[in-house]
Simulated assay, not measured.
Amino acid sequence: AVLSPAEVYRATLEGAAYKVAAPLPKLVLMGIASGMYIGLGFSTCALVGGNLSPEFRKAQPGAFAALYSLIGFPLGLVLIVFCGGDLFTGDCFSSLVAAMEGKISVLAGLRLLIVSYWSNLVGCLLMVGLFDGGAIYPGRDHYLIHLAEAKCSLGWGVVVVRGILANMLVCLAVWLATAARDAGGKIVGIYLPIMSFTSIGLEHSIANMFIVPMGMVQGADVSVGRWIYANQIPATIGNWIGGAIMVGLLSAGIFGSPGARAWAAWERGVAGTRQRLRECTSADRRRSVGNVQ
């Protein structure tokens, strides 16, 4: 059994209200934990699928993308959902719809986004330190370095659009996980969109908080300034648009009270237009009859 889309929408509102009401230290810890989970998930796929040979990656890009996305990265969101984390990209969706529905204030939604973003960063950087301290990547870092450099070599517009698509899939993964009522269903619901996101090669601002700094530690030719300007800022903008507008605004229009009010106004407008047309038609007929007489 699964929740209906309307029930998922209502559960999203309740989740946002719960986070806003949580004490700040708890919210920070939830965000830090989520950043750590993202680092664990990415490292799993980078150290397994990413260590397929560069020759194979170039000769069989489709097969490489499939193998790379199959292993590891969905783990990050699975841990966040099952362990009760707070991820910025999911908050882009939930904070907007909760504010539109009056469940939280706009300022409370903005606070949620700011706290989750910076606490996610702390969690990601903590994992960078742990992986570096454990000497996990040396000798197995060729794809990580390639990916960090590639992410910071794209144009702003490209990163923004990839960020939009990335967070559409992430928010839809959370939607499916919320709809499922058992652990297996939640895992499958998360796995499919995140596998799609990873194999396509999109831009997730929180994942990049781990990927690029970890690559820099391993010797990627990227400066902090270049990372922030060329990747982190446009990816964040794209992620907000993807979560808030492409998923949030659409779901509010379909399942929420803002949509219901808009459709009611539309129906009133259509009814009024029909009434005016009938009145105009009747007036024309009366004039025609008068002219004939």
Rank of each mutant, 00 (worst) to 15 (best):
C83E: 11
A265I: 00
R140H: 15
V222A: 04
V224G: 07
S43G: 04
A177T: 00
V161N: 04
C280T: 15
S94N: 12
P213A: 10
K58R: 15
L13F: 03
A98Y: 05
A99V: 02
S95Q: 11
L113F: 08
C83R: 14
G259S: 10
Q232G: 08
G272H: 13
R268Q: 13
L202F: 09
I254M: 08
G35F: 01
V97F: 01
I200N: 11
A1C: 11
I237C: 07
V212L: 04
C124H: 10
S257A: 15
S153P: 07
F64S: 08
G49F: 02
E279T: 14
N208K: 08
C152D: 06
S199I: 00
I245N: 10
D132W: 15
I233Y: 07
A65G: 14
L277S: 14
V270N: 11
L172T: 01
R286H: 13
M216E: 00
S95N: 12
A65P: 09
S105P: 06
R181D: 01
L110H: 06
M127R: 12
G102F: 02
L77A: 03
G184L: 08
W227N: 02
L249E: 06
M214T: 10
M246T: 11
A1M: 14
S257R: 15
A166V: 01
G163K: 03
A235Q: 06
A21H: 12
M214Y: 04
Y191T: 03
N231I: 00
V20R: 04
G253H: 11
S69V: 01
Y117E: 03
E7N: 05
N291A: 15
T281C: 12
L29N: 09
P61F: 01
V20I: 07
P213E: 04
